[in-house]
Write a protein that binds this DNA or RNA. Structure first.
Length: 425
RNA sequence: GGAGAGGUGGCUGAGUGGUUGAAAGCAGCGGUCUUGAAAACCGCCGGGGGUUCGCGCCUCCCGUGGGUUCGAAUCCCACCCUCUCCGCCA
């Protein structure tokens, strides 16, 4: 959520900044609501003040044994007016809030303007796609040849967009998780977190998935209105909801491995083949809570932390900065890391690293005590995948294949593979 | 699932209808004293919102949401959470 003050004192400028990302702010509606809000709020507070004074007067009169009937009658009249004013106020505030909650974050000035994915800007490239002297196969063919990846069985057990992995491939998948966690905790200074995979609506509202993106989530049908997490961002970032952190606690860097569940509504026909887009996948997530002045430097660091995973695995990738039109709802700036997939002859997203500024923190009420002012101020939050495990597995299969369909195990993963150095059909 | 207890400021903990946003203690901050420190003493010390150039003034917040009342931390209802005991269980 943006600072509501922006809608009051800086409405035109805010609308202009949001227009960069193609969002049309309801300027007239907001300024009309604001005018209404102001007069109703002042009136309401005056009535509250009168009520309080009257109640005190009644109390004193009774204590002194005087007749308070007139005062009580006056109070009753005030109470009636107040009730009406409060109802009006909460209606206006409700409208205001409903609009405010649906407004996306303002892109940072360094974000290139653009309408779609095509206008994202590549900022760097690491490694170079290997030249195969045969036609490289995609992970579906490779997995099937190995007999270690099975979508049909998953479809029988559950339905479309699930996978069963078995044997050494399942182990490789687990090895990736261990490797990533060890790297981020051991070398990058993140604290490992184990968190709930079911969350309440407040948490989803805090990180911005609700109210706007309910359709992307799986909701439990039981008594408790719980949701399956779409990313560890939700539980991990909500660790600091409603907290005022001391300066010394920042930056707070957390890493967590969780499964992620996404309904993928609206993606029909997209990536239906293979493990690229599933309803359930594993992810290692990096989250940082930082001082406001540090957040853009932290974004560079966090992105580099995610890239290190690919470098250690020796997987070629490129990093792009998302243009204003392709950024997520809550983000001020996002880097996507895209890994090379020989089977598709293209770079595919494997991590998305974002700085949310104070946008999530405002919803979460996550603050830090600024030592300079001694006052609580909103912290800044960031997160990024480090990395999406399923897609990393796909990248290894496709990049480490040979003509016989054998998959070499990257050196960095061998300590986790119990002596297995390759997977063979 | 059954039975009970409880949710008050950073923490401990008073407060059961009336000038209570809330005693007291601890912690924290500033000061006096001291060569320095400790102790002692004095003062300050929650958060959100509105308004104002600012000092300030007003308002809301005692788990959450409703209700009763001139007036609610205090009474009533619903919900949430925590703890204890029993049962079941990875």
């Amino acid at each position: 959520m943006l600072d509501p003050r922006l809608f009051r004192s800086d409405l035109e400028e805010t609308a202009r900044l949001l227009a960069r990302r193609g969002y049309l702010l309801e300027v007239e509606r907001l300024s009309a609501l604001e005018a209404e809000r102001k007069s109703i709020q002042i009136k309401t507070q005056e009535l509250q003040s009168a009520r309080n004074a009257n109640a005190k007067a009644v109390g004193m009169a009774k204590k002194e044994g005087r007749d308070a009937a007139d005062l009580v009658a006056e109070g009753a009249a005030l109470a009636e007016q107040l009730k009406a004013a409060e109802a009006q106020l909460s209606e206006v505030q409700g409208h205001f809030e409903a609009i405010a909650l649906a407004v996306p974050n303002i892109p940072h000035e360094s974000v290139p303007e653009g309408r779609s994915e095509e206008e994202n800007v590549e900022v760097r490239r690491w490694g170079s796609p290997q030249a195969f002297d045969f036609t490289p196969r995609d992970h579906v063919d490779l997995g099937a040849a190995l007999k270690l990846m099975d979508a049909e069985t998953a479809a029988k057990i559950t339905g479309a967009r699930f996978t069963v992995l078995s044997g050494a491939l399942a182990r490789l998948h687990r090895a990736l998780i261990q490797f990533m966690l060890d790297l981020h905790t051991g070398e990058h200074g993140y604290k490992e977190m184990y968190v709930p995979y079911l969350v309440n609506a407040d948490s989803l509202r805090g990180t911005g998935q609700l109210p706007k993106f309910e359709a992307d989530l799986f909701r439990l049908a039981g008594e408790q209105p719980y949701y399956l997490i779409p990313t560890a961002e939700v539980p991990v970032t909500n660790v600091v909801r409603d907290l005022i952190l001391e300066d010394g606690e920042l930056p707070l860097k957390m890493v967590s491995h969780t499964p992620c569940f996404r309904s993928e509504a609206g993606s029909y026909g997209k990536d239906t083949r293979g493990m690229i887009r599933q309803h359930q996948f594993e992810k290692v997530e990096l989250v940082q809570i930082v001082r406001p002045a540090d957040s853009f430097a932290a974004l560079e660091q966090l992105t580099a932390n995610a890239e290190t995973v690919l470098q250690r695995l020796e997987l070629p990738y490129r990093t792009v900065v998302l243009c204003t039109g392709d950024m997520g709802f809550s983000s001020t700036k996002t880097y996507d890391i895209e890994v090379w997939l020989p089977g598709q002859q293209s770079y595919r997203e494997i991590s998305s690293c974002s700085n949310f500024g104070d946008f999530q923190a405002r919803r979460l009420q996550t603050r830090w005590r600024n030592p300079a002012t001694k006052k609580p101020e909103l912290a800044h939050t960031l997160n990024g995948s480090g990395l999406a495990v399923g897609r990393t597995l796909v990248a290894i299969l496709e990049n480490y294949q040979d003509e016989a369909g054998r998959i070499a195990i990257p050196d960095a993963l061998q300590p986790y593979m119990g002596g297995i150095t390759s997977l063979s059909p």
